[in-house]
Design a binder for these strands. Structure first.
Lengths: 233, 233
DNA sequence: TGGAAACTGTAAGCGGCCTTACAGTTTTGC
DNA sequence: GCAAAACTGTAAGGCCGCTTACAGTTTCCA
């Protein structure tokens, strides 16, 4: 994002939150009043499982990882959010302690809304409520397909699936193939597909040797998108 | 349920739908107008993946399984619903084809609401909308913990977890222990925890030999609830 | 810019669970 | 009530992916 070209005030950012797609300007302005903007450094936890759910967050810039950690230290990543995403609203809605952790992956800009204000706002803006319901429903479906992945497919297929998805959402077409505009470590990929870091390294090596992908440091380019998709099913 | 004691009309049933907990009588009556009651025999599919999402359902009596099947024939069960549950609303909300299948496990009584009417009703009753959002949120959390189960725990722990949960929701206290008021086949349990039928049979046998549970035909009694819970973590 | 810390590559060993196989039991439907 | 169908018990063999181990590489940040 080229900030020199934009006016990065709260209202500008709110316009780019998916929850507010198609929402009236007045409704947006009202939301602006109850939000507070906050800069957060890379690798900072925003909340941990068990914390009281006191706020809802809008992500303006950077990435945020929603995850949980087992007593053994093994971690599962539920989602990696990007600018425009809302998070933390589930626990707030149910008035339950945090069931996951949220942590910045990059330097981030985040809007914070106190629970009370969020509840009140929703009650007064049914159209936003409706959007929120659809949004949560979409996330439910997404995680259902994660369960299917874990049960139906083994690791190479799960990894191929992850790469294909990243290609769709974060891919940049180049002459050699689709360059992924994300830099995930093998550990982070492992947490996303439910396997060990070593296994990711090994299978990625195989994909490379098979000419499916190219790896330049932490930059991945998909050379044969269709062959990769074949692997999924 | 002893039907001789009840007046099983639509309104009576709607009162026992969780979505309508705490909803005003007038709102309920309005819902009654747009529903149609239907008897469905055991083991009948209500919809399959890919079907158009034309209706939302309320389950009045019997159980309904929400699941999906891989090309290999392997099946994953997302949920087994009971009287009082709503289903099929996710795909309807998003106007997308069915992403799962729904099938009766017992003879069932089901209320059907056409998509249009449901949408309209929601738009006019924000309090029901709010309940629905919370309900979907709850389901999202439930399935998140399924993902954790699959990633963090191996089969014996997953099975112990399933039995513990069934004990809480379907358990009847008896002198020997907690009798599970559900009759699931080993295949159905396998689909719920993501493993093969044979593995369920083997581990259940071990639990029996270890004195944790008792099996009488298809009736399971948990003899040592705490020992079973220990196994989960 | 240089040293520390984090990440990647690779391989051997092993264990959990799947597959295959089949006999015995329970339930279902006529 | 009986035959057929569905379900359960059990075991051998194999393989996927985890763990362990460590050297080499890249990235971070002071």
């Amino acid at each position: 994002m080229d900030l020199s070209q934009t006016v990065p005030n709260k209202l500008w950012y709110l316009k780019h939150i998916r929850l507010f797609d198609g929402i009236s300007p007045s409704e947006m302005q009202e939301m602006e009043k109850i939000t507070r903007m906050e800069e957060v450094k890379k690798r900072q936890p925003l909340y941990l499982p068990g914390d009281p759910s006191s706020s809802v967050y809008f992500l303006k810039r950077g990435r945020v990882k929603i995850a949980n950690t087992a007593p053994s230290g093994k971690e599962v990543t539920f989602d990696i959010l990007e600018a425009g995403d809302i998070f933390g609203e589930l626990d707030v809605l149910e008035d339950a302690p945090r069931s996951t952790s949220a942590e910045t992956l990059d330097d981030a800009l985040i809007c914070v809304i106190p629970r009370k204000d969020f509840d009140q706002y929703l009650a007064m803006h049914p159209s936003v409520m409706y959007k929120l319901t659809k949004l949560i429903g979409l996330r439910l479906k997404k995680i259902q397909s994660r369960v299917e992945d874990l049960v139906f497919r083994e690791v190479p297929a799960r990894l191929a699936h992850l790469l294909s998805e990243l290609g769709k959402t974060e891919g940049v077409a180049e002459k050699q193939g689709i360059r992924l505009n994300v830099k995930l470590t093998h550990q982070e990929m492992a947490n996303l597909i439910g396997c060990s870091r070593e296994t990711v390294s090994t299978i990625m090596g195989q994909f490379r040797d098979d000419g499916l992908i190219q790896m330049d440091g932490r930059t991945i380019t998909i050379l044969k998108p269709s062959a990769l998709s074949q692997l999924v099913s």
